Amino acid sequence: MSEHEHDEEGYTGPAVLVFDAAGTAAEVAVEVELRGHFQPIDGRFHWYGRVKKNDEVTTRVEGGARKALLRTPTGEAEGALTDQDPWGRYRVGGTSTPPYRIEEPVER
């Protein structure tokens, strides 16, 4: 592995996006594929991935919702929904503890 490659950990499976519009929370069940890595330059964990096509997510994003809480069976984190790909999937990501469990580094 080169010095510029990242050790990426991830999660693929069911999740829930919690949108909070005007103080009214709405939960949307989704399927996600997520990855992430620790970035030593800024000292933070960057996670990102795609939300599988979901008509309710599309309606909310087109209505202006760009931020949501992403919850998986092992964690949750605030994330931003951005570009939609040709297959109707939205990119999601954040810079924080990821919304899934990551393994602790092994001491060497």
Rank of each mutant, 00 (worst) to 15 (best):
E78A: 10
L69W: 08
T12S: 14
D7E: 14
R108T: 13
T74L: 04
T58Q: 11
E107H: 10
G88D: 02
R44K: 15
Y100C: 03
E62N: 14
G64Y: 08
L81Y: 07
T24K: 15
G49L: 00
A22I: 03
T97V: 08
K53M: 13
A65F: 04
A68W: 01
T58K: 14
A21D: 15
L17C: 12
G93K: 07
A15S: 11
Y100F: 14
G23R: 07
E5L: 12
P86R: 09
Q39F: 12
H46E: 09
T82C: 00
T59R: 15
L34A: 03
W47P: 00
H4V: 07
V28T: 11
V61H: 02
G43P: 04
V61G: 04
S2K: 11
A68T: 08
E56F: 05
E76I: 00
E76S: 07
A15K: 04
V30D: 09
T58A: 12
D83T: 09
E31T: 15
P40Q: 13
T95Q: 11
V30G: 02
A21I: 15
L81V: 05
G64Q: 11
N54E: 11
G13I: 02
V28C: 12
H37R: 10
N54G: 05
R60E: 04
E103Q: 10
V51L: 06
T95A: 07
Y48D: 12
E3C: 04
Q84R: 15
E31L: 07
L34Q: 01
E3S: 13
E56Y: 03
F45Q: 04
W87L: 10
V51C: 11
G43Y: 05
Y90T: 06
E5I: 11
R66T: 15
P40M: 08
R66Q: 14
E56M: 13
A21M: 13
K53G: 06
G93R: 05
L69P: 00
G36M: 02
E8G: 02
S96E: 13
Q39C: 06
R108Y: 10
L17D: 08
G10K: 03
G79K: 01
E62P: 05
Y90L: 14
E31C: 04
I41K: 13
T74C: 07
Y48S: 15
V32R: 01
A22M: 05
Y100M: 01
V92G: 05
